[in-house]
Nucleic acid binder design. Structure first.
Lengths: 253, 253
DNA sequence: TGATATAATCAAACATATTGAAACATAAAC
DNA sequence: GTTTATGTTTCAATATGTTTGATTATATCA
């Protein structure tokens, strides 16, 4: 049987049964599970199905919207704890700013018990999530949307941020160093984050401990420019000691 | 049975019975109580149920927040055909603008075979979809994000649009009338759409035929301000005749 | 045709996810 | 308060997924 033929039949099968397991397909078509997986991968790439652990289901939106798949994120547990603490700093009625990223998305997910918030974000996924799930006033900065990441950057983004003031900014980073400060690969991104700090009465850096000791091209600011740094308890004691020596306000969770 | 299937079925069960105990679910699905607990945890994380001692109940808050049933897109088939035709107008390398809405989302979903597009949108869901699925240059206008809808509106949005030029704008509407033109409930939204038309070398209105004869508060423009109107073939012959008399460029699909 | 490149497939090694059982913690019931 | 039921955490076992390299089939071109 031709590959394309098999893929069509798999699709037909899933359409009829709404779902299928890898095992059952491998048996039906008498090929290895590996081949089935590749077929399913292909069908998913074309938005026809959604792959899940053990098989796949139809891509049609079901009555209830359950996220079918969570993007694999590293240090997920750490990020959740960081987010949990970050949320405790937010008071009802405040205006907050959420940088783009997975950690800040975790913050967004934990805001549901707050009341009357105004939330600004540069992340289109966060904006979408909040618009769908909450009753807050939500603003998206707009700008050039980075593929996969969903982060808005560029002059438009910076301009938007120059015109607002918020109570707290939650900024994420993937490179933080005691000496070199917070850095990022491009000037554009650096500028956006600079504006985020400027716009805020209080700036909080949220980053898991694996990001310490990394430096990138464009500098955003120094560690002491943040009112607080939240990270996880896997931070090496040596770094922690240095931070305390520098009188950086840090919270380990 | 796939995990995701079980979770859907548990959700369905709770929806029907308003509640369920861990024990009863474990027995029904023939898995351990531990697994059921994890499933319930997952569903709670997604705001679908509320966990209680011994089981879970439906998240009643959901009844209000879920326009999902209502949102189950009306005239879906028509919208798909309209989108299909709209996509045929787009050439590789062009810059296009997609208004917020379900019809324009259908357009976004059909762009994947195009090459080297630059896409601007005021819809955070469309921006997110494109960022996740394609390799295009994607821009989001930013602004006040409307709950549930995901559309950006407000001065920030209009300002962004004032600074760009695109080859084609695809505009959606929920109210179109031969005499009163295209209208919308608020001035803010009207202004955004006006800017979208201004920014475009060519403006295309995409709307299913059920929207004809409806008028709202704020006027956007007249029908003749569009270079083309794409709608479906359910449009009453009387209206079609009028349109032709007015020399409106219309395409029925 | 024969030689070479390309694609599809499989199997094995390794990585990750899911599950259930046991130990421990907490809440409800009496 | 004590008891009982339920929930949580942790760990090990199993199931599933991914990556890699070898093998075979298919396509391409001199």
């Amino acid at each position: 049987m031709l590959q394309i033929e098999r893929r069509h039949l798999i699709m037909k099968y899933i359409e009829e049964n709404k779902s299928a397991t890898v095992e059952e397909l491998a048996k039906n078509f008498d090929v290895s599970t590996m081949t089935i997986r590749r077929d399913l991968q292909y069908l998913e790439d074309n938005n026809l199905i959604v792959r899940t652990h053990g098989g796949a289901i139809l891509n049609t939106k079901l009555d209830i919207e359950i996220p079918l798949k969570e993007k694999r994120v590293r240090n997920k547990e750490e990020k959740k704890r960081i987010a949990q603490y970050a949320v405790s700093l937010v008071k009802d009625g405040q205006t907050i700013l959420l940088d783009a990223g997975t950690t800040t998305m975790e913050i967004a997910k934990r805001l549901k018990d707050k009341k009357d918030l105004t939330i600004v974000t540069s992340d289109v996924f966060i904006a979408g999530y909040l618009a769908r799930n909450h009753k807050f006033r939500v603003f998206c900065t707009g700008g050039h949307v980075q593929n996969m990441v969903g982060a808005c950057i560029g002059p438009g983004t910076s301009e938007f941020l120059r015109n607002i003031n918020v109570d707290i900014s939650f900024i994420g980073t993937s490179s933080i160093d005691l000496e070199k400060g917070i850095t990022t690969p491009t000037f554009e991104k650096a500028d956006v984050k600079k504006q985020m700090i400027k716009a805020a009465g209080k700036s909080v850096l949220v980053t898991d401990s694996s990001k310490f000791g990394i430096t990138k091209f464009a500098k955003i600011c120094d560690l002491e420019d943040f009112d607080l740094i939240i990270t996880d308890n896997k931070l090496p004691a040596s770094i922690l000691k240095e931070l305390e020596k520098l009188e950086i306000n840090i919270k380990l969770v």
